[in-house]
């Protein structure tokens, strides 16, 4: 366990010493919030709370897909990564350490979104709702973490950039992250969204912060996605071992 924390600590240090990376992951969702949520739903308390939840999952997903997918693929190309595999530790500390690191970075990335929501919109939460919401975010980030790891351990860094982008947009839109209040979403989104991991994740956040009742199908699918991507990530990691080096 202490080794997990050691890995998390040093990965976090490595990341925050390049502050632009942290700023970058916070910038995108904050901008989306300013451009899409504030002008269109800012004056409606319910709509802007839903939209804030969506943007938070949007931020989490982009942080996960890009820092894991591309970050892991880039790390694998560095000789430091094979060196770490010679140390007396299995894959768990590095894997788990990375997950903790990105959870920390995610919490930093959503601060601007929350600040914008509080200052510029009518979105409201109580303190327990906010804490519950943060918990929901950490649970909801799991499938994207594992998705990012699968991509990172399977593809080269150049391919990982493309794959992450290709996966990112349809999953975000299809899950209804950009269509606001779920009751008024287009028919197509209503049909597709329960099957996508973004939906289950955002419904958890909505349920935590509003009186929204989540769709059991979306939550079951969220669990299914977690299992699928966990299996994929482990498979990709094992397969990666001993193949990459020349």
């Amino acid at each position: 366990m202490s080794l997990v924390l050691t890995h998390a600590r040093y990965q976090f240090l490595e990341t925050v010493r390049v502050p632009i990376a942290v700023i970058g992951s916070a910038f995108f969702p904050a901008m989306a919030m300013l451009f899409f949520v504030v002008p269109f739903a800012g004056d409606n308390a319910v709509a802007s709370t839903y939209a804030t939840g969506s943007m938070v999952i949007f931020a989490v997903m982009s942080a996960c897909l890009f820092t894991y997918g591309i970050g892991v693929a880039e790390d694998r190309a560095q000789p430091w990564d094979p060196y770490l595999r010679t140390l007396p530790a299995g894959p768990v500390p590095r894997f788990t350490g990375r997950i903790i690191t990105v959870m920390g970075l995610t919490l930093i990335a959503i601060i601007p979104v929350l600040v914008i929501a509080a200052v510029l919109t009518e979105a409201t939460v109580t303190v327990p709702q906010l804490l519950l919401g943060l918990g929901a975010i950490l649970v909801g980030s799991l499938p994207f973490t594992l998705m990012g790891l699968s991509i990172g351990y399977t593809f080269s860094s150049k391919a990982a950039i493309v794959i992450a982008q290709v996966v990112f947009f349809p999953t975000a839109v299809g899950g209804g992250l950009l269509t606001g209040d779920p009751a008024y979403a287009p028919e197509f989104i209503k049909i597709v969204s329960p099957y996508l991991p973004t939906r289950g994740a955002v419904e958890l956040v909505w349920a935590a912060t509003t009186d929204f009742t989540p769709n059991p199908l979306a939550l079951i699918m969220l669990a299914v996605w977690v299992v699928v991507f966990a299996a994929l990530a482990v498979w990709a990691y094992r397969r990666d071992e001993g193949r990459r080096f020349t």
Partner: peptide, 29 residues
């Protein structure tokens, strides 16, 4: 592998870590 030591390629050492931190990190294993 507790009983072995390996040299990493120096080009791969994490550039943002300090020398002492890097040593502590490896020592923790």
């Amino acid at each position: 592998r507790r009983g072995i030591g390996v040299t990493p390629q120096e080009t791969g050492l994490p550039p943002t870590l300090r020398v002492g931190e890097c040593a502590d990190f490896v020592a923790a294993h």
